[in-house]
Design a protein around this nucleic acid. Structure first.
Lengths: 208, 208
DNA sequence: TTGCAAATGTGAGGATTTCTCATGTTTGTA
DNA sequence: TACAAACATGAGAAATCCTCACATTTGCAA
């Protein structure tokens, strides 16, 4: 079962096998990323992506079936990075105090990334528009939730597994929503909202 | 009946003054609503809206500056309805028990609407894509949050006003997110997620 | 009633953007 | 060196939003 390669094979129309084309695809993604950070994914034009990457529009469509596929590929990259970060942050958690500290720290880290990374911001924001992106988003929350649930169970071995998994999923998904909200209001209020969310999430974790 | 004209006048390029044109604008909105419930706002074509409403494409643009304006107008309508529902539900709250019961009931009501109303579903889903729609969404959460904060203060007079207002805002905004998440997974899981959100929100309310 | 200005209505076509495909070029390898 | 497979190209087809110059209808003052 090549379940892990599923997302990739769906996103790319053709896998670049030669070194030259691998580099070109990389340039396409970087160009797209730059354009998104400048004006958002809506303002990203396929022709401009091709031009910046130094390839023809035809080459772009050789690898990406449509515009959404580029954005989805970028989204999955960022998701993978974030997930690795979460996995690392929760790896050494041994007791409830450790979990609360580690998870609280992860929220701050994520918020920092949201504030700093215009591409991630934009992709998260556009995440609701496209059905496929929405699915990626939900799957990401689920995967991150599984990581949280694992640590959670470790520190509370007696708790109901199903309930913990579901709550972890909800907490992760609402975390993203809280960040989205935070970055769309004034900075000071956004900070306070994230702090409120953090308190709420940690209380929920401790309450099981 | 004139209170709605406020939001309308911002979205409309020209206010229909004659009875005939008022009815035509109404038909345009109904046609748009029907098309959105069939295939989502993305699949809604301006030409099709005009055709269904029995008007020309030119008439459509006579009143709505762009496609987004139609969606925004519909969004504000639904928001106004929802807000009225929340205001009514929280009006008679006298103590914490009453608040918990009333707010819990409102969550269920909202969830029912989300499940039943494809148009509302779609508009909330698309809510992140368009900057203007996103602003409407945030303002709506803020207004709903103000209603919750008012009732909240009524039952806990001693609490910090600023903190309560901010938390109410967060709870309302995360409520919408929880609903969005719930309707994009299997029904049984969605129900459980909404129940979890409800418990989380009510615990937060009681914890101040 | 009549005349006229303001309001309303129209749809062909301009502008933009995504995406295709027939054709040409490069690469790995036998 | 020959050849198939992989890769690259860009003009233009297709889809869609929106405009605008012109036609029609309405309300009302004379």
């Amino acid at each position: 079962m090549d379940a892990t390669e599923d997302t990739t094979s769906q996103a790319l129309r053709r896998a670049p096998s030669q070194k030259r084309s691998q580099e070109r695809v990389e340039r396409m993604l970087q160009a797209a990323s730059a354009l998104i950070s400048e004006g958002g994914s809506d303002a990203m034009r396929m022709g401009e992506v091709a031009e910046r990457a130094g390839v023809s529009i035809g080459s772009l469509y050789q690898y990406f079936p449509d515009k959404g596929a580029i954005i989805r590929t970028l989204a999955e990259r960022y998701n993978a990075e974030g997930r690795a970060c979460i996995a690392e942050g929760l790896a050494d958690v041994r007791d409830m105090g450790g979990l609360v500290e580690a998870f609280g720290g992860l929220i701050d880290t994520y918020y920092g990334i949201f504030l700093a990374e215009p591409v991630m911001r934009d992709i998260w924001s556009g995440t609701q528009a496209d059905k496929a992106l929405r699915d990626i988003d939900v799957r990401d929350s689920r995967a991150n939730g599984a990581l949280l649930a694992e640590a959670w169970q470790r520190v509370m071995p007696g708790a109901d597994v199903g309930a913990i998994e579901r709550k972890a999923f909800l907490i992760m998904s609402l975390g993203e929503s809280a960040m989205r909200l935070a970055i769309s209001v004034e900075r000071a209020e956004g900070d306070a909202l994230v702090a409120d969310y953090k308190a709420m999430a940690l209380r929920e974790i401790a309450a099981v």
